[in-house]
C-alpha cells in the first residue's frame, strides 16, 4: 500500500496543506483537494515520487520543529505559514510545493465533480470524444481573393 509511505501525522499534514492550497467552494460544489477521492488519487503516484515528496516534506517542516509542531498550529498560524511560501512561488519556493502542487493539480482536475463544475465531460476522451463547432468559415473569403504568393 502506497499510503504506507507516509505516517499518519504526515498524511494529516499533507491533507491540511492540500486543503489550504485548493479549498472547497460552495459555488459549483467544488471539493477541496484533501477530499478522500482526490487525495487517494495523489497517493496513486509511483512510489518513488511519493518517497521524494515525503523527503521534501520532512525537509520543509524540519525548520519549523517537525511534524508535531506544525500539526499543532492554529488555523491563522498555519495559513500565514502557507501564505509566506506563496509569495515565493513559483521560482523561489521550496521544492516541496513544486512537487506537491503538480501532484494535486493532476489529481484534482481529473476528478469528475470538478470537471462537471467546469462544463467538461468527465472520464476518458475515448470513445465518446467531444464536439467542436464548425466556426465562421466566411472569414476565409478575404484570403480566397488573394493572389498566389509562393516563390518558384
Amino acid at each position: 500500500m502506497k499510503e504506507k509511505v507516509f505516517s499518519a501525522e504526515e498524511l494529516s499534514l499533507l491533507k491540511r496543506i492540500a486543503s489550504a492550497l485548493i479549498p472547497a467552494s460552495e459555488e459549483g460544489g467544488l471539493p477541496a483537494a484533501d477530499d478522500e477521492v482526490i487525495f487517494q488519487c495523489v497517493l496513486e503516484n509511483p512510489a518513488e515520487q511519493l518517497i521524494q515528496l515525503q523527503s521534501l516534506l520532512f525537509e520543509l517542516i524540519k525548520q519549523e520543529g517537525g511534524a508535531a509542531v506544525v500539526t499543532a498550529w492554529d488555523r491563522t498560524h498555519f495559513d500565514n505559514w502557507i501564505a509566506d511560501y506563496e509569495k515565493q512561488w513559483p521560482k523561489q519556493v521550496h521544492s516541496f510545493f513544486k512537487v506537491y502542487i503538480a501532484m494535486l493539480l493532476r489529481a484534482y482536475y481529473q476528478d469528475a465533480r470538478v470537471l462537471i463544475a467546469y462544463d467538461r465531460r468527465p472520464g476518458p476522451p475515448f470513445p465518446e470524444g467531444y464536439v467542436v463547432i464548425e466556426g465562421d468559415w466566411s472569414l476565409l473569403d478575404a484570403v480566397k481573393n488573394r493572389k498566389p504568393f509562393y516563390r518558384r
Binding site: 503538480a102 493539480l105 493532476r106
Partner: peptide
C-alpha cells in the same frame, strides 16, 4: 484541465487558497 491549472499557477493567474 490539468495543463490549464498548471500554467495558470505558474503564471500566477491562479492563486493558492480562496482565489483558486
Amino acid at each position: 484541465p490539468v495543463t490549464t491549472a498548471m500554467l495558470g499557477m505558474l503564471g500566477n493567474r491562479v492563486p493558492w487558497g480562496e482565489g483558486h
